[in-house]
Nucleic acid binder design. Structure first.
Lengths: 193, 193
DNA sequence: CGATTTGCCTAAAGGCTTTAGGAAACTTCA
DNA sequence: TGAAGTTTCCTAAAGCCTTTAGGCAAATCG
């Protein structure tokens, strides 16, 4: 029998495509095997387990997003950088919903530490250089930005904003405006009242 | 054979507990059957399918959160209301991680429309009555709040904020401060610069 | 109390995961 | 070039999950 030429790389890539087509939940070793017209057991030469496959798809997605973000950030600062960065996530999630879902997979600490997730955090910090924030507010702001981007995109993708007016593109722009305003005018502690 | 006294209600409740103990992903019809010391097939008298079980757990979680939120909101307004509302989500997610994850399940439109999700949206709008926002900004703000709450909680639960300083409780307080400040000072359109 | 409905069971089929062991296809190098 | 070794893919099989079908006993209703 001729060999199929499987590699971990090709399998992961196929898994990522599958995720975008039918949802990350539906990605199984079996489904990937079918895609290569190969028996399931054969994939275990290249993958440790089903979980291994999913983790690799997640890492791929994180890399791809980080690469796009790095490019988007080049030569920009301030609100421009903020908007470009934010758009990278949203656009990526729209183009690759399955991969985006994969990127949400909970990674074990070591894997996470070695992943592109680290670059994401660094870039977010870099954006904040355009605003006047000292620690620990800078860290709070990093977390806030992460929350908004992730939260917005996952609600939007999950249909949380239904198809009602005003459209989500408009909300997205206004959200970025709001974040920019907030960062330029970060409240001091205990702003009660 | 004596009957086990199964009901849809009891099964869903058991499923929710299971979710909190071992994660929503691990909730299966089989696992719930085991919990009642009953054969798997027996559950299909009370549940349409595995997906039905999961959906019902999601609906339960949405109800519980909405109930808590409604109580928290009673008699409060402005930043007090905002903070109380926000804390409901975070606390619920910490107490019931599995149920919280369930609440993130994508529901089909009809189910979603009949769910407590509607109450959540209404309450968020109610909170904004304490701030001076006209449409469409009010809707943008509703979406922003939803994004932040959901995004923050899911990143925190997923270990996204690791265990680094400053602690997440502090960030949470500051996030609410920031949102309050933002809502009181919502930027006009095109605040570029 | 007999008849009907309901609830749980056994049986069974089909799918996914994962391991074990075999055979063909590549690679290496004399 | 061809023998030896390695790698890749295959068959087989066990284990777990879902879901349907059909049966018997328990609860409920006249």
């Amino acid at each position: 029998m001729a060999r199929a030429g499987l590699t971990t790389e090709r399998l992961v890539r196929a898994g990522a495509e599958l995720a975008d087509e039918v949802g990350f939940e539906q990605v199984t070793v079996s489904a990937v095997a079918r895609r290569f017209d190969v028996k399931v057991a054969s994939l275990y030469t290249h993958l440790k387990s089903s979980h291994d496959l999913k983790t690799r798809i997640a890492l791929l997605a994180l890399e791809e997003m980080a690469d796009r973000a790095a490019e988007a950030l080049a030569g920009r600062s301030g609100k421009d950088a903020l908007a470009a960065f934010a758009d990278v996530y949203r656009d990526y999630a729209h183009e690759h919903p399955g991969r985006y879902a994969a990127a949400q997979l909970r990674l074990d600490p070591e894997t996470a530490a070695a992943s592109a997730g680290v670059r994401h955090a660094q870039m977010t910090r870099a954006i904040l250089r355009g605003y006047d924030l000292a620690e620990p507010d800078r860290t709070h702001a990093v977390r806030l930005l992460g929350s908004v981007f992730h939260g917005y995109v996952s609600l939007e993708l999950g249909g949380g904003f239904s198809h009602s007016a005003p459209d989500t593109q408009e909300t997205w722009s206004r959200t970025i405006d709001a974040l920019d305003a907030l960062l330029r005018n970060w409240p001091a502690r205990e702003t009660n009242g």
